[in-house]
Design a protein around this nucleic acid. Structure first.
Length: 934
DNA sequence: GCGATCAGCT
DNA sequence: CACAGCTGATCGC
């Protein structure tokens, strides 16, 4: 966005082409490996700014920075640096000092906090620390800069301003023996930490809006609120216990929900114990410590001693359609035939690899440093986080114009939020702009400067809406603009999708490479790094949770139907039908076999396994979240005993019409006992209602099933996971390959929000459209709607879905009236130019331009940085593909696993091919054995 | 007509 | 290919 329309169009700044790079702070693993380091010289501009923050961090921050940053500077360095700067001339030092001291500016990029969009202040600062930039040009306005455009502060460095402000601030800080800036930043959200990681105390101050219902009392996770409005985003995670109350964001009422099935016995869990104690407890298993796919072995400790050969063999049998656990071998046809899955060569290589793994297997080291670090941060009090954001606006040039005065007035009026004043500063600005439009007499006086006024006039003229958008968009290099409509957004070329150069390699080349990679993978099974990615690439050809490449013959030796077999369903229908089996002779229903990784050994539990009919031995069917590939098979007449949380239960009952008696709702973050097994549901950070399942078996074995999840560091603080040594981790391995790196959700949301805001500022007749699934991606459109001060228009169906999410705040911000909202939500697949043109026409009375966000969380083969995102544009319609993922990136996965130190990992995604399984195994092994610097 | 399933598509 | 679906055709009841 930043390059599609230069803010110079409005504020007369000159466009700058540069983009920023991620800093070492966020790229923890990269930093550890010494990758993607930048020279101090490259960092000079923003680095100077960052340094000011770091100078003020004090002890709380020190250890963390030492670990994460290679270019930490000491406070004395900073004092020296800032002393060498001139005092800012030509402006009221008093006013600036006041703002600096009150936390009115980002200490890194110097942006006034008053123009923060959605982000909390500490979130913004953390992001700035994350992305210090490389070679940003100094802002042309230098010490006089008062831009209120967020992207301006990304585009230009403001080191002069920073030094000037910092110097003054440091002097006053020293004088008063206080450290305001320190308190202004919650460092837990620095780096890869999600915004959901604030301290408890910060929440108390964050929840300051009186309209919060009791449900919202646990809000505020990381996103410390601006004084204007609470953030609906915070509602999008599952409920938590009082143990981590105010840390996670769902309703208190849900948290306290004690609704259980009659068979449940609910107790409050107290699983926390010192790590050292645990180590002793599990030291007996150290010999068996290995990460394995084995479906055959029970959990280490249960099936404690394997012969080496047996272990190897088990590991070979990890294809689900072939094998279950040991207890399944009887019911299936033995394991002999399953060996046919792999060629002899493959077996040999695999065994060699396992030898390698076993030899190198070792106890993962302690991660005390991280814990220590986290503890040290918990003492931060963010009382100052709710700073006087609004004062900043009035300090700049913007105060000269009537608009800004009006805004300032409103902002001042809003500085003490009331029930009815839930608008962000940005939405107030927009409101003013709209007023100006409806009253053209005011337009001439709009804006801080003459140039702005003129351009604004053009922009706001309904006579020339298209020419304006074209004008502003002409700045954009449209190398990827779609040629022929929707096809221009073909997702197979993700580079193009995100505005990068189209891949030029021919299909033939790809195929050759693929073959080579496959051969290489076969030849060098032990060479993880060399072939892992290629192997994964090949492996991901198989559909999630599917095992379709396994030939039926390999499963039990019966004849495989020919591919040309007739019947509806086409080519693959033949063997697919074969893959089913009749439950009983009289039952016409046929089902696929339930893969081993969907069953929990030692229990009667299956997870997300509804497409296999009633599975023998399974007495409780867990549903981790409400996505169709997980609930597939559930119908209104289903009689599975379903166990899930409240939100998912709501959806199952509301959307699938499953009878209430079969839906057993479990509370979040509360240990329950289901059929003798202790079960705890934890927030999976995936979609609303998504849960991680923690099972503690009667014999003490621990199993963690992540469902679909996006790992984040705050999970390392889940009380329920503290001190537990997980024996088996069922892991969402959707993006378990190093090429999958993508920005944090916050970065992407910030991008979308800033982008939407800028478009609407340029042309208030812009309709914003966001794509969604049935459940998921809510954070994007809620954030956008919040900043625009608009409701979100949804289809009736989607509206009903949202009403299942147990959030009053969400319900209040949605509507089904398209005329009443500037933000519309459409199904993801409807986001193409043809549909959007049609959609825009429906609302042509109010809107003449449409900007769409397509949060597609997948296929990020090449790293996509938010700075590089460019829209696809056709006429007055622009579509942004944004890399918003609800699955873990590779590094997030790695960090989570290295923290959790499971004894065994069972991947649940991309398990369809040997290659992908092998690649994942290699990564697991690498994670386990590499020196850990967590 | 309704629901379920599947190919094709995004 | 992957996500997480949606659409339309086809089939059984």
């Amino acid at each position: 966005m930043s390059q599609s329309r230069s803010e110079s169009d409005i504020w007369d700044y000159k466009p700058l082409k540069k983009t920023k790079r991620k800093s070492n702070i966020s790229d923890e693993n990269g930093a550890k490996r010494g990758k993607r380091r930048k020279s101090p010289a490259q960092n000079i501009n923003k680095e100077d700014n960052c340094a000011e923050v770091r100078a003020d961090l004090g002890q709380n921050r020190g250890s963390y920075l030492t670990n994460e940053s290679s270019h930490q500077q000491t406070p004395s360095d900073q004092v020296q640096a800032s002393n060498s700067l001139d005092v800012q001339p030509g402006r009221s030092r008093d006013a600036q000092d006041k703002q600096a001291e009150s936390g009115g500016f980002c200490p890194v990029c110097q942006m006034p906090f008053s123009i923060l969009v959605v982000q909390s202040q500490q979130w913004h600062v953390a992001e700035c620390l994350d992305t210090p930039g490389e070679d940003s040009r100094e802002c042309p306005d230098g010490l006089h800069c008062t831009s209120s455009i967020p992207s301006h502060y990304k585009r230009y460095s403001h080191s002069l301003l920073a030094h000037s402000r910092a110097r003054n601030h440091i002097v006053s800080t020293v004088a008063t023996q206080t450290c305001t800036v320190k308190a202004t930043i919650d460092f837990k959200s620095v780096g890869n930490d999600a915004p959901v990681s604030t301290t408890e105390s910060s929440v108390d101050s964050a929840v300051s809006v009186s309209t919060f219902s009791s449900q919202s009392s646990s809000l505020g996770e990381g996103l410390t609120q601006t004084p204007t409005k609470t953030n609906a985003l915070l509602l999008l995670r599952s409920p938590n216990t009082d143990d981590i109350k105010k840390k996670k964001g769902w309703s208190a009422s849900t948290k306290r929900s004690q609704s259980q099935s009659s068979s449940q016995e609910v107790r409050i869990s107290t699983p926390v114990k010192p790590r050292t104690e645990v180590k002793e407890e599990f030291s007996a298993f150290n010999d068996d410590d290995y990460i394995s796919y084995s479906p055959l072995s029970e959990h280490p400790g249960v099936n404690e001693k394997h012969t080496t050969q047996k272990t190897k063999k088990e590991l070979l049998f990890h294809d689900d359609t072939v094998h279950g656990h040991e207890r399944e071998v009887d019911e299936e046809d033995g394991d002999k035939d399953s060996l046919k899955l792999f060629s002899d060569d493959d077996d040999e290589l695999f065994i060699n690899m396992l030898d390698h793994i076993e030899t190198n297997s070792q106890e993962l080291g302690p991660h005390d440093s991280l814990n220590t670090c986290l503890k040290s941060q918990s003492s931060l009090t963010p009382d100052d986080l709710i700073a006087s954001s609004f004062t900043a606006v009035s300090d700049g040039k913007s105060q000269h114009g009537p608009l800004s005065q009006s805004v300032e007035k409103q902002l001042t009026a809003n500085s003490k939020p009331t029930d009815t004043q839930l608008q962000s500063p940005q939405s107030l600005v927009l409101e003013c702009l709209r007023e100006r439009i409806s009253n053209p007499a005011h337009i001439n006086s709009l804006g801080p400067e003459a140039t702005s006024v003129n351009i604004s006039q053009d922009l706001f003229s309904s006579q020339t809406p298209l020419s304006n958008s074209q004008k502003t968009l002409s700045m954009t290099p449209r190398r990827n603009q779609a040629k022929g409509g929707p096809s221009g957004l073909k997702q197979t070329d993700i580079g193009v999708f995100f505005g990068l150069k189209p891949l030029t390699r021919s299909k033939a080349e790809e195929e050759v490479d693929g073959k080579e990679a496959d051969q290489q993978a076969s030849r060098k099974a032990g060479s993880v790094e060399a072939n892992g990615q290629d192997a994964m690439r090949a492996g991901r050809r198989h559909r999630k949770n599917e095992v379709s490449n396994v030939s039926p013959a390999a499963e039990d030796g019966t004849a495989q139907p020919t591919q040309t077999e007739g019947g509806r369903g086409g080519r693959a229908a033949g063997w697919k039908r074969w893959n089913r089996e009749k439950a009983t002779d009289g039952d016409p229903e046929v089902h696929k076999r339930c893969p081993f990784y969907k069953k929990i050994p030692g229990t009667g539990f299956a997870v997300d396994a509804f497409q296999y009919g009633l599975v023998e031995g399974v007495t409780a069917y867990f549903l981790t979240h409400f996505h169709s590939d997980h609930y597939i098979g559930l119908k209104k007449n289903s009689v599975f005993p379903i166990y899930c949380n409240k939100i998912t239960g709501n959806l199952v009952k509301s959307k699938l019409k499953v009878h209430e008696q079969y839906v057993h709702v479990l509370p979040m973050n509360t240990q329950c006992t289901v059929q003798g097994v202790k079960v705890t549901l934890l927030d999976a950070n995936h979609c609303p209602g998504a849960a991680i399942l923690l099972f503690v078996l009667p014999d003490g074995q621990t199993v963690l099933h992540t469902g679909d999840f996006r790992a984040e560091p705050s999970m390392e603080r889940y009380p329920e996971l503290q001190g537990l040594r997980i024996q088996s981790l069922y892991l969402d391995t959707t993006y378990c390959s190093p090429e999958y790196t993508f920005p944090t959700q916050q970065e992407v949301i910030t991008f979308a929000v800033n982008t939407a805001f800028e478009w609407v500022t340029l042309n208030p007749r812009t309709l914003i459209v966001c794509g969604t699934y049935a459940v998921g991606k809510e954070k994007v459109f809620l954030a956008v709607s919040e900043v625009l001060g608009s409701k979100v228009c949804l289809s009736r169906d989607k509206y009903n879905t949202m009403c299942c999410l147990e959030s009053e705040l969400i319900v209040q911000s949605i509507t089904t009236d398209g005329q009443a909202a500037q933000v519309h939500v459409l199904p993801m697949m409807q986001l193409n130019f043809k549909n959007l043109r049609t959609h825009l026409k429906k609302f042509s009375r109010k809107y003449d331009q449409l900007v769409a966000f397509k949060p597609t969380g997948w296929t990020f083969k090449q790293t996509v940085r938010v700075e590089d995102i460019q829209p696809q544009t056709q006429g007055n319609i622009s579509i942004y593909g944004i890399p918003y993922s609800e699955h873990s990136s590779y590094l997030e996965l790695k960090r989570f696993v290295q923290w959790l130190r499971p004894k065994k990992i069972i991947p649940t995604v991309n398990v369809g091919s040997w290659k992908s399984r092998k690649a994942m195994e290699s990564y697991f092994h690498e994670w386990q054995t590499e020196p850990r610097i967590l």
